[in-house]
Deep mutational scan, measured.
Amino acid sequence: GPREVTMKKGDILTLLNSTNKDWWKVEVNDRQGFVPAAYVKKLDSGTGKELVLALYDYQ
């Protein structure tokens, strides 16, 4: 199956793709996968990378 990404509340993840309104593709610890968009919030990183903050645990 697809590689699952797990996250804990407060984690910072790299946002790869947010074109789908329900599932965003993120990368964390060299793993890529989809997380519910409602579970993360975009951060203003000030760099080229888009980052998101995990609002809830997800696994």
Rank of each mutant, 00 (worst) to 15 (best):
W23P: 00
T6Q: 12
V5T: 05
G33M: 15
G46T: 12
L43E: 03
K21W: 05
W23T: 01
N17P: 04
P2E: 11
W24A: 02
Q59K: 10
L43T: 04
V35D: 02
W24F: 06
L53C: 07
V52S: 01
E50G: 09
T47W: 09
M7Q: 01
D57F: 05
P2Y: 14
K25T: 07
L15A: 01
D57L: 03
Q59M: 12
Q59T: 15
D30E: 11
A54L: 06
K41A: 09
A38G: 11
Y56K: 14
F34C: 14
Q32R: 09
M7K: 00
G33K: 04
P2W: 14
T47F: 11
K9T: 07
T14K: 10
R31A: 12
T14F: 10
G46L: 12
V52L: 08
L53M: 14
R3C: 15
L53G: 02
E50F: 10
Y58D: 00
R3G: 14
V28W: 11
Y58W: 13
L43H: 03
L55H: 01
V52K: 00
V28C: 10
G48W: 05
R3E: 12
E4D: 13
N29A: 09
Y58M: 02
S18N: 08
D57P: 05
K25M: 15
K25N: 06
Y56W: 09
L43V: 10
L43C: 10
L16K: 04
D30K: 09
D11Y: 03
D57W: 04
G33S: 07
E4C: 15
W23H: 02
N29S: 08
K49N: 10
E27P: 00
G46V: 13
L51N: 05
E50D: 12
G33L: 15
V40G: 00
K21T: 09
D57Y: 05
K41M: 14
G33D: 05
W23I: 03
Y39G: 06
K21H: 09
D57S: 06
E4M: 15
K21F: 06
P2A: 14
Y58N: 01
Y56T: 10
M7G: 01
A38Q: 11
K42P: 08
G33N: 04
L15S: 01
L55V: 06
T14N: 07
N20W: 06
L15R: 00
A54Q: 01
K8V: 07
V5I: 15
D22M: 10
L13D: 01
Y58T: 02
K9L: 04
A38D: 13
P36L: 06
K25D: 03
V28G: 06
E50R: 11
V5K: 02
V35G: 01
L43R: 01
N29H: 10
K8F: 07
K9I: 07
W24V: 05
A38K: 15
K49G: 08
G33A: 11
L15E: 00
V52H: 02
Y56I: 10
K49C: 09
A54K: 00
L16Y: 03
Q59A: 12
G33Q: 06
V5N: 03
Q32H: 09
G1T: 13
D22Q: 10
G1K: 12
L16V: 12
R31I: 14
A54M: 07
T19Y: 08
G48A: 10
K21S: 10
I12H: 04
S45H: 10
Y39W: 07
N20V: 04
K9R: 11
Y39T: 08
K21L: 08
Q59L: 10
T6Y: 13
L16P: 01
V35M: 02
N17W: 06
K8P: 01
K25P: 01
T47S: 12
L16N: 02
K25G: 05
W23K: 01
R31K: 13
V52W: 05
M7W: 06
D57N: 07
D11N: 04
K42M: 13
M7T: 02
D44E: 14
K42Q: 08
K49P: 15
G1Q: 13
Y56P: 00
A54E: 00
N17K: 06
Y39P: 02
P36R: 04
K41N: 05
K25H: 10
V40S: 00
G46E: 12
Y39C: 15
G1S: 12
N17A: 09
A37E: 03
F34G: 01
S18T: 09
V5L: 15
M7Y: 04
K9W: 04
N29T: 05
K41R: 10
D22T: 12
G1V: 11
K25Y: 15
D22L: 13
V52G: 10
S18V: 05
S18W: 07
E27Y: 06
S18C: 11
V40F: 06
E50V: 13
E27M: 11
E4A: 15
I12G: 00
T47K: 10
G48C: 06
W24L: 04
K41G: 05
Q59F: 11
T19E: 14
V52R: 00
K8S: 07
L16I: 13
V5F: 15
K49T: 10
V28R: 08
W24H: 02
G48E: 11
K41S: 09
R31M: 14
S18P: 05
T14C: 09
W23F: 06
V40N: 00
G1E: 12
V52N: 00
K9D: 02
P36W: 05
L53A: 05
G10Y: 03
K41D: 07
Y58L: 04
N17E: 15
T19S: 14
R3A: 12
G48S: 09
G10H: 03
L51V: 09
N20A: 06
W23V: 03
K8I: 07
S18Q: 09
S45Y: 11
L43S: 03
L55I: 08
L43W: 06
M7L: 06
R3K: 11
T14P: 08
A38I: 10
W24K: 01
G48L: 08
K41V: 14
E50P: 11
W23N: 01
K8H: 08
P2G: 14
K21C: 08
W23C: 09
Y56M: 12
V35A: 02
D11T: 05
D11P: 00
P36C: 07
K8E: 05
E27Q: 12
E27G: 09
P2R: 14
L13P: 00
D30C: 10
K25L: 15
Q59E: 13
V26Y: 00
V26S: 00
Y39A: 13
